[in-house]
């Protein structure tokens, strides 16, 4: 695959040419510029905000649940009570056949199974903000784990 950075001089020439004939091509330049430290910090902050939100949800923070309109448990139990440090959530093992569901499942499927079955809560939108935050926290906490999809 071509290294995008090698194309920068060409793109710059093209942009200058386009700019000389009219506006409208600057987006192409902005997207290809090397990231600044400020940009990277901003990207990281977006991610870590999701991690912190997911951590709060995972530990049963009622305020965060209310804010996101979800009810993850009806038993008083939070995810972290069985999964301290996200132990045994095994994000690195998905997708895999999940025995409890008797089907091939993703991490999001498993999160919803845990919410609905052991926690007796209400399943959440698999593409919604609460799910994304929970996923962010679980992956962040397991970021040194080794990918091992399919393992049971």
């Amino acid at each position: 695959m071509t290294n995008p950075r090698r194309r920068y001089p060409l793109i710059a020439v093209a942009v200058v040419a386009l700019a000389s004939v009219g506006a409208g091509a600057r987006w192409a330049v902005a997207h290809k510029e090397p990231h600044t430290a400020e940009q990277l910090a901003a990207f990281q902050e977006v991610f870590m905000e999701q991690v912190r939100t997911g951590d709060a949800l995972f530990h049963g923070d009622a305020e965060t649940e209310k804010k996101l309109g979800v009810k993850l448990s009806a038993t008083g139990m939070a995810c972290a009570m069985c999964h301290p440090y996200t132990s045994d959530t095994h994000p690195h093992e998905f997708p895999k056949f999940q025995e409890q569901m008797n089907e091939f499942a993703t991490l999001r499927d498993m999160i919803n199974w845990c919410i609905e079955k052991p926690n007796e809560g209400e399943k959440i939108d698999p593409d919604g903000p609460a799910m994304k935050a929970l996923e962010a926290y679980i992956y962040w906490s397991n970021r040194h784990s080794k990918l091992d999809p399919g393992r049971h």
């Binding site: 951590d55 530990h59 132990s87 906490s141 397991n142």
Partner: peptide, 10 residues
């Protein structure tokens, strides 16, 4: 293959 990290939000 599991390597865990301490939590962050608190």
């Amino acid at each position: 293959n599991q390597v865990l990290s301490p939590r962050i939000a608190d």
